[in-house]
């Protein structure tokens, strides 16, 4: 909003200035605008970063400094990290979150792409009905499915009970309707000629998907993978319901053990938050370009 108002102001200034040196005033205006842009962006950037600095700074404070109002710790300590890492199975929760998010992401990328491929490139009876059926599941608030899912996990259609297992945590999310929809959009862009050429060369139908369609939609898949990984990394209620063994819990569930009947231990919560947030940031910074390109794609196509 501000930039637009500023924009208008500048235009008015421009209009007021005499017609002499139109180019010069244009240049000056551009420079001013750029300066203003940097100023506003730095302001916005600080808003983005300060909460994280506050989080990390609190995690380094001893308990006695929590209610003192100093921004940085006076006597910085790593004790909170020691407490969180050694007195709780934090690393185990970490590993669990990682395993669950990985299982479901691999599965989602494969199956959602396959669904997208089929709905984009095949014609078959009941196609629209089936697609609508899949899309309709997008609108169901998951809170309502917890009990049916839990009953299913206790008496599963196959194998021993799913409770307290990685599969139990992951299964509701191994295929997603949103991802299938997204992948269909991208699969539509795969040229039919390429597929027909493949068929003539004797490539199997699965081969067409695996060897031709998938490589062409790789950027979209990476975006899907990122979204899905994040979604699973954040999941709270279902992992809570389906695990009863501390050793099988995931990070968000584990974090909730820091706030209990006794209120909240802010220094420990901020330590847990730091530990759960920082690795994702590192991964993001490493893969920044790919991630942003992938996400930008979903906007253009979606």
């Amino acid at each position: 909003m501000t930039v637009l108002e500023q924009d208008r102001e500048i235009t008015e200034v421009k209009a007021a200035s005499s017609s002499g040196g139109f180019l010069e005033s244009q240049k000056r205006q551009d420079k001013l605008l750029k300066l203003l842009a940097y100023f506003l962006l730095i302001l916005g950037g600080l808003t983005m970063v300060i909460p994280f600095i506050w989080m990390i700074s609190t995690s380094l404070k001893p308990a006695s400094e929590i209610y003192q109002g100093n921004f940085f710790p006076n006597a910085a300590t790593l004790n909170n990290y020691r407490t969180v890492l050694l007195e709780t199975p934090f690393l185990r929760w970490y590993l669990n979150s990682f395993i669950v998010a990985t299982i479901s992401t691999v599965s989602v990328v494969f199956f959602d792409s396959l669904i997208g491929f089929v709905f984009a490139k095949y014609h078959f009876p009941l196609k629209n009905v089936m697609f609508l059926l899949i899309l309709s599941t997008l609108m169901i608030p998951t809170e309502m499915l917890l009990i049916p899912w839990f009953i299913m996990s206790v008496n599963p259609p196959v194998g021993p009970a799913w409770v307290n297992s990685y599969w139990g945590i992951a299964f509701p999310g191994i295929i997603t309707a949103a991802g299938a929809f997204l992948m269909r959009q991208f699969m539509t862009g795969v040229p039919d000629e390429l597929l027909d050429a493949g068929r003539i060369d004797g490539v199997s139908e699965f081969g067409l998907f695996w060897r031709i369609a998938m490589p062409l939609t790789l950027p979209a898949m990476s975006a899907l993978a990122i979204f899905n990984f994040l979604g699973n990394w954040n999941a709270y209620i279902w992992p809570l319901i389906v695990t009863s063994d501390k050793a099988m819990m995931t990070l968000p569930v584990g974090l909730s053990f820091f706030s209990n009947e006794n209120g909240a231990d802010w220094h420990l919560i901020m330590t847990g938050a730091t530990l759960s947030v920082v690795p994702l940031m590192i991964v993001f910074i490493i893969f920044q370009r790919q991630i942003i390109r992938g996400i930008a794609l979903t906007g253009v196509k979606g």
Partner: peptide, 22 residues
């Protein structure tokens, strides 16, 4: 002895377990 349930979520866990017969 199952005590790996956060205080705030104790009833959720009971509610989910009962219909499942566990």
């Amino acid at each position: 002895h199952n005590s790996d349930v956060p205080y705030a979520d104790y009833r959720d866990k009971i509610a989910a377990s009962a219909p499942a017969g566990v």
